[in-house]
């Protein structure tokens, strides 16, 4: 109850920290998008954890069960995942264009090129 009840949320926070670190510390643009994905997943897990009831079952109605986990977060996250992949595809296509324009996908090299212009 006491420590275990927060374990899930702390786990979410650790994942979020990893994603956040990748996002701000790594210079590679593809890596940054991967970091963004990790960050995203941590938020998904946070929502789904909030909807879970111990001893409950998946929200598909059936006469054998009476306790269901909350369906609302599931719906929100379901759409969020698909939108997430669409946006990361958009991000990756931006990376491809940056590679074609600058010849590199490292952030500091791009900044140098911009300054030397």
């Amino acid at each position: 109850m006491s420590a275990l009840s927060f374990l899930n949320y702390w786990f979410v926070i650790i994942l979020m920290m990893v994603g956040f670190y990748v996002l701000i510390a790594q210079g590679n643009l593809v890596k940054k998008i991967v970091g963004l994905n990790i960050f995203q997943t941590s938020v998904f897990i946070l929502y789904i954890s909030a909807g879970k009831i111990t001893g409950g079952t998946a929200p598909i109605l059936d006469t054998q069960w009476s306790v269901y986990s909350n369906p609302l977060p599931h719906v929100l996250i379901l759409t969020a995942i698909v939108v997430g992949v669409a946006t990361s595809a958009l991000g990756l296509s931006l990376v491809v264009r940056i590679k074609e324009a600058y010849g590199t996908i490292e952030e500091d090299e791009i900044a140098q090129m911009d300054e030397s212009l």
Partner: peptide, 19 residues
């Protein structure tokens, strides 16, 4: 929609030519 979008995205990435 999802089908069309995923296929379009894949085509545009894969058909772009190699570096």
């Amino acid at each position: 929609t999802v089908f069309g979008v995923m296929v379009v995205i894949f085509y545009s990435f894969a058909g772009r030519g190699r570096v």
